[in-house]
Nucleic acid binder design. Structure first.
Lengths: 113, 113
DNA sequence: TGAACATATGAACAATTGTTCATATGTCTT
DNA sequence: AAGACATATGAACAATTGTTCATATGTTCA
């Protein structure tokens, strides 16, 4: 590992001081890890159109109920979506405004230039 | 897989029509996958304070030069950061405003409630 | 040119992850 | 209460990923 140049020392200290806590960074990485899968992104993109039941999501994605349900549970554990029961069906929706914003900005980054 | 209720049919069609292309969703998932690692999040958090050389990043993270360099190359391939050489040193910085925004919103989501 | 420095890269290994299949849970209707 | 329906969950397998170690590339200065 390279030596630390004296003129870098205070940048290092300053940056360390301004960084969010290790706990926050760890949890943030966990959240993005959940965004980092095509099936889950497709689910989130569908839900950004509005609340939806599981069978609709399966139909839109063209995937098995089991695969979708597993991913819904991952999304819910990470608090990216929330659920509501109506009779036999479960309706899912984005958890809060952050989720739509993150998704949107990510898509913009991909779509631009 | 459950049957499609008639009242759901048009929601399904509508949502399918409004979804970004498969290619965009795939690429978006790839971008978030890159955000989904603690080491890379720490690097991005450091770079959000400003441009920085590799040895500073190693020092801030307390990690080996090799591990950091590998992750920098992942971040760069995904166009989350860009680099600039100055003599023997490489300086890295966030690629564009989207990256800081995504990171920031993710951290906010974690820090709130 | 050669030595020293800063960073990059290839191979390899352990650990994590997404899907499928089978089955369980919870809800409604008769 | 039983059967049908909608969704959830456990086990298992293939595939992907992050780090380490060793070494290569590129740059400066004597």
């Amino acid at each position: 590992m390279a030596d630390i140049h004296p003129e870098h020392a205070h940048i290092i200290e300053q940056t360390k001081a301004n960084m969010p806590s290790e706990e926050v960074l760890e949890k943030t990485a966990e959240v993005f890890k959940v965004f980092g899968d095509k099936t889950r992104i497709r689910i989130l993109a569908a839900l950004s159109e509005g609340e939806m039941c599981v069978c609709c999501i399966c139909e839109i994605l063209g995937m098995s109920q089991s695969a979708v349900s597993h991913q819904l549970s991952v999304l819910k554990s990470a608090r990216l979506i929330k659920s509501r029961r109506e009779g036999k069906q479960m309706y899912y929706s984005l958890d809060d405004a952050h989720i739509g914003a993150i998704l949107c900005t990510g898509i913009s980054h991909v779509e631009e230039d």
